[in-house]
Structures are given as structure tokens and as C-alpha cells.
Design a protein around this nucleic acid. Structure first.
Lengths: 211, 211, 211, 211
DNA sequence: CATGAATGAGCATTCATTCAT
DNA sequence: TATGAATGAATGCTCATTCAT
């Protein structure tokens, strides 16, 4: 739409966009399962149905794919947290965040594992990406929650630990899915289990926070 | 106890035991940081101060070291859970379990990451080891907790999800230490943070369970 | 001259000629700096401001560009030698050849390095091209010089070694420019150094040859 | 023999020394023929009769082999020049240098081409190695020669250009051997040609320098 | 003419594992 | 026990060349 065309805006072809997408999708599949070091370009290119050199025609290195993938996903990954609004009902806002996170564990478990894999290993490749965004966002939301508590709208607990506990409990179902499945015989993708999980967590956070 | 198993009298010398220990300690350091695929025998042998072929004299493959390490750690890893006794005070038993787990995240974060790394990737190398032990133990303890609830000694929640939430929230501080440190500026190894964390979690589980 | 050769009337358009020229100029720049194996079609096409496939539309392979380049340059490369005429003053003819060669080292160092690179590596790609032309020409001129010596117009030395020594000393300033620059702090492109060099060489060959 | 053994002096095994030698010899053969970029580790390892990974067990990269080779050869490469002594007979010292250089072109043509290949391409990998040593040595010897000229023991010419001309004319027979062979039908390795060449050059430098 | 897209073959380097001593 | 030496099989990446448009 009438965007300025100064200096090769590197307009991407349809094919290019499509292939980049195919590669990132394949990379998500592979990286989330085997981690960065455990994944090979061969695996990704096979998953993407494309030759290795062709894949490297679109991304200049394995590292490049990984970084692009993480930074493209970061936004949607943080979206549920961004949605937490200081103007809503305090408990409802938090419970809603919990619900969204459980849904994400059901709908985007690979994305969750992709980040988990990185962070567990000390985030060697993405600390810079994370450091700014996550810190700022978490501080902002923790402040909102802290205010609610000051105003007596929620029981007082440490807001940052509260957020950690939400992350931990919800992501657990995606990141450690294999273990969950071992124990329950089914995962969060099962509708019943999904409801159980959500109910359990909503109850847990309500108990802790409701005045 | 009482040793003297049947089998070949493969009596291990003191040196043998010492070297095995050195290797496993080195492997823990390396595997917990880089995952299985990301770790190399070179790293482990250097960390162990021992030549590569000598290391492979004690363990026949990288896989073998990994498996041995996991199975040797499994017992102590599950110890806190084993300690949960049907004869104690219900809430106190559970809170004690939480406290022990938080302590483990502080004292044995590498062990936690070792398991986390494996499970996140679908436990490809250790599912068999886990499957039996964990399932049995978790079922046993879930039953105990379930009974307490039936008896009205605790509020009713799904016992298995309760256990998951304890795992998730406590292990989070070890497994995702990097992120915690990014946000708080310090980790669970900091005495103040350790107390904060423990207090937060004890409060959380108390709120949910106390009659 | 007179164009209109037999063969297909492959009339080249102006654009075609221009592009061929652009490619050969780019190839000279790249090949002279990195040698044949060290140069990539990518480098050449970038230097030529043209896409790789388009470049290969004009020349069917890297080899082809290289060969074309060498054979096109050969003529002008040998021109100074061709100019050595049996009808001139013997010493003056030779000194003039020396002067022309020094000028070429100043004005066309890339061409010099292009040939040097090839010949140092055993001229694997251009022996056939060289063999005929150079041999014939050198034999012809060596004979002329030899005659002058027989006639007592120059001191007697081996004419072919004389030619080698002219090649060696003059081309040195182009081929090993980097070293010259390391030692003198400036190259043959510097006007003062150019005069020094020419004077030195003229003196050297005069001393050896003047009756 | 009784050398201090403080801190692993990295004593090299006999095998290690032998293999390093084999590799460097093979590398000289290959690098001198194809240049750095044109040579492959495969070629070198085959020439050395050894597997590629084994070769990389001794040298950590292609670059490493190349650098080691150049720095090990530099000393003997510069030896003839070092031998030029201010205490000898001026002309004889210089002619002796010329003779030694011609001999080196006969006996060590690969070494000559190894350096030539590098310098022609701008010495990208060895400028630092060369810069110090060559400059110092050349300045020292040029000063000696200059003194002789001041003292009237030699005709006056620019000493540095004199050295260049010695390098150029003598090394020509090694570096551009292929061309020499094309023209003469034989190379400097032929005893007759060797004598011809030496005589020609001795005459040339004598003519220029003798009072 | 011109180029975006694609690939087989090659290349430097790594790594788990074995061999010889 | 212990280690220096050796290697087959990857693995990330490059490059000349071709295909399709």
C-alpha cells in the first residue's frame, strides 16, 4: 500500500515467502524436539522437503534459522502476557492469563519447548533477544499486579514469583508433555485433560489470590 | 544392602570406583549444561581430567555414561517424594515435600536440568528407566493424597495435577535458572531469594489445600 | 579488421559486447587477486554488477571466462616484445623493451598477476595457449638479439636468459607488489619509485650489454 | 636429557614428529602447486598417506598447516641473505648470494613457489610473519651494500632495487619453471641449464657492480 | 537478456569410537 | 589401567552449474 520504495526494499517473492515459511515451520518441528545442537540442517531440510543448499539460500546458517524463528515467535509467545490489562478485574485478568497460557500449551507446545530448550541450556543463543523484552514486560505486569495487591484487590504475594508459578505450571504441560503422558496416559491435547488442567490451575490461583 | 550379589565377582578396585565417580560427576556437569547431543566426550573427559579412551574403558559409550548417570541419580531424585508418608500430617507432608523440592533446586540444579533436558526432548534415551519407577511412585503418592482428601483432611483437587504443579513450580527455579536470574537479578542460590521462593510456594499450596 | 568471418553470423549486439567486457574486467580484478581456484563466480558477478546466471549466459563456465580473459590479454601482453624490431638500434631496442615492460607493470599489474598466478601453478589451464605463441615469439626475438651479438653490436650473453631476466625484473614490481610495498613503503605506482626502478633497470641492462 | 619438566613441555612422540613432518612435506607439495585456496585437506592427507581426521589431529586446521609450514621455512628461506657478510669482499659476497639463490631455485623450487603464491595474492595469510623479518633483514643488508658503494668498492646503484633484481631473476627459475621449461625445453634442474643460468646472472651482476 | 530458485558435488571440520601399545 | 594415534560417519557450509520463467 503505497509504501516508499527507497532502496531495494528487498521485496520478497511469493515463492520466497512460502519457502521461508516452510523452513521455519520445519525448523520449529525439529528444533523444538532436539534442541539447537541436536538438530541438523539435514533434518530441517528434509522436513521442509527441500535440498540443504536451497535451505541455505534462504537462511545463511543454522544459527540464522534459529534466531529468526525465535524472534518471530517471541511476539506471539508474549501476547497472552501483554493482554493482561490494569483496567480489568484483577482476579479475572490473572485467571484469564492462566487460561490463555494453558491454551497455548495445548495449541503451541512446540513453541514452548523451543524456548524451554534454549533457556534450560542457559539461553546461549538468545539471551540478548530475551533480556530486553521479557524483563520490561514482566516488570510492567508485576507492577500492575503489585498495585492491585496494595489496593487490597488481591491477596498479597510476590508478583514476580506469581508470574513464575503461572509460567511453570502452564508450560509444564507442553515442555514435559512426555512425562505428563507417561503418568496420565494422555496429554493436554486431550479435551478432558485440558479441562481438568485448566480447572485445577484456575482453582489453585484463585485460592491463593482471592480476597 | 548386604551387597554380595550373584553375577560375576566383578569386584571393583578403589581406583575404578573413584574414576567412575569422577566421570559421572563430569558428565553431570556437561550433560546438564548442553544436553545429550550438545555434549561431547571430549568435554566430559577433559572435565574429568582423563583421556578419552580411558573414559571409554569405564563406560562403553556416551550413551552408556548418560544412562548410568540418569539411573544412578533417579533414586536420590525421587527421594523427597518417597519421603511423603501416609502417616504424617497431610498438609505438613505435602508442604515438606515442597520444601525439599525447593532445596533440591538450590542444591542440585544440575541434576534437575539433566532430567529436564531429557524429558523436554521426549525422553528418547530414558523413557524405559522413568516409566516404571515414576509411574508407580506417583500413583502410590497420588493415592495417599487422594485418601487424605476423601477423608476431608485436605481440600479436594486432582492429586496428580497437584504433584505436577509441585514439580513445575519448584523445578522451575533450577531448570530455567537463567530466566529467573534475568528477571530477579539473582537465583535460588541466593539465600534471600531461596526464602522468598519457599515462602511463596508454601503459601500457594497451603491456600489451595488447607481445610 | 574486416570482420565478417565465416562461421555463424553470431552478430553480437552492443549490449552483448558491453556485458562481455564488464564480465572480463570483473574477472580480471578477481582472478588476478585470488587466482583461479580462489575466485568464485559470485565474486565476479558481483564485481560485474550482474546476476550469476546472466554471467553464465555469456560464458559457459568459470573456466571459459578464465580462458577467454587470458587469450584476449595475451596479445597486448606480448605487444612490447613484438615491438622489438631488428631494424632499430640494438641497445635502444632492448632498453625500450625494458621501459615498456616497466610501464606495463605500473599500468597493468593485474594482467601481470593474472598470468603469474597461472604460470606459478604450472599453467594447468593455459599451457596450450601459451606454448605456441610465446615460444615462437621468444625464439624470433632471441634470434634477432643473437644476431646483434654475433655482429658485435652487443656484448654476448645468452639471449633467452636475457629475456627471462627482463621479464623477471620488470614483472617483479607487479607480481610481488605487496612485498615491494612492504620494503619500500610504496609501489611502482608511485611516480618517484617508477623512475627509480626504470633507471635502475636501464642501467643494469646497459652495463651488461653495451659494447 | 635432563631438561626441566615443569608443566607438560608437550614432549613430542617419535610418531608425532614423524607425522608432522610427513604432513608438512605433503603440504609443501600441494600448497606450492595449487596455492592455499586451490589446495584441499584431502589432497594433503592423501599425499601424506594418512586419513583426513588424523591429519587434523596434528594440525587444527588447513590454515594452521599453512602457517606452520611458512614459518618453519622462513628461516632457511632467508639463510642465503643472512650469509651476506659485511666483512667479505663486496662483489664476491653479492655474487655468492646470487649463486646461493640460484641453487635454492634448483634445490627448493617448491619452497619458492609456496612463498610466491602467497605474495602474489597479497600475502593475505602471512603479511605479519613477513613484515618484521624481511624488512629488518633487507634493511640491514641494503645498508651494508650501500656502505660498500659509498666506499667506492662497488658501482653505485640503489641497493634495495639490487636486492629485488637478485630475487626476481633467481626465483624466476623456480616460480615460473613451467614457462622456462616451455621455452628452453628443460629447467633449472638440468645441470647444463643450471650452469648457464648461474653464469648469465653472475655476469649480469658483475657488469653492473664491478668497479 | 535477465534473474530467482534449486541442487549435486565438494570441502573444512567435528565427533564417537576403535586400535595399538 | 591408561593413552597416543587413527578413522568412518557425520555436519555445517560453499560453489559451479542448471532450471524455470
Amino acid at each position: 500500500m503505497g509504501t516508499a520504495k527507497v532502496e531495494k526494499p528487498q521485496r520478497k517473492t511469493r515463492i520466497q515467502r512460502a519457502n521461508e515459511q516452510k523452513i521455519l515451520e520445519a525448523a520449529l518441528e525439529v528444533f523444538s524436539q532436539h534442541g539447537f545442537r541436536g538438530s541438523t540442517i539435514d533434518q530441517i531440510s528434509e522436513e521442509a522437503g527441500m535440498s540443504k543448499p536451497n535451505l541455505l539460500y534462504y537462511f545463511k546458517s543454522k544459527q540464522d534459522i534459529h534466531e529468526t524463528l525465535l524472534s518471530r515467535l517471541l511476539d506471539s509467545w508474549l501476547a497472552p502476557m501483554r493482554a493482561l490489562s490494569k483496567d480489568g478485574d484483577p482476579l479475572e485478568e490473572i485467571l484469564n492469563y492462566v487460561r490463555l497460557k494453558v491454551e497455548m500449551s495445548r495449541d503451541f507446545p512446540r513453541e514452548s519447548r523451543l524456548f524451554a530448550n534454549e533457556i534450560i541450556q542457559g539461553a546461549p543463543r538468545i539471551k540478548p533477544i530475551l533480556e530486553g523484552e521479557i524483563n520490561d514486560l514482566l516488570n510492567e505486569k508485576a507492577a500492575i499486579i503489585g498495585n492491585w495487591m496494595e489496593e487490597g484487590k488481591l491477596k498479597k504475594v510476590d508478583p514476580k514469583h506469581l508470574i513464575f508459578s503461572i509460567w511453570a505450571t502452564t508450560q509444564h504441560y507442553a515442555d514435559f508433555e512426555e512425562q505428563v503422558r507417561m503418568v496420565l496416559g494422555r496429554g493436554i491435547d486431550d479435551p478432558v485433560e485440558f479441562e481438568n488442567t485448566k480447572a485445577f490451575l484456575v482453582n489453585m490461583f484463585t485460592s491463593m489470590l482471592k480476597i
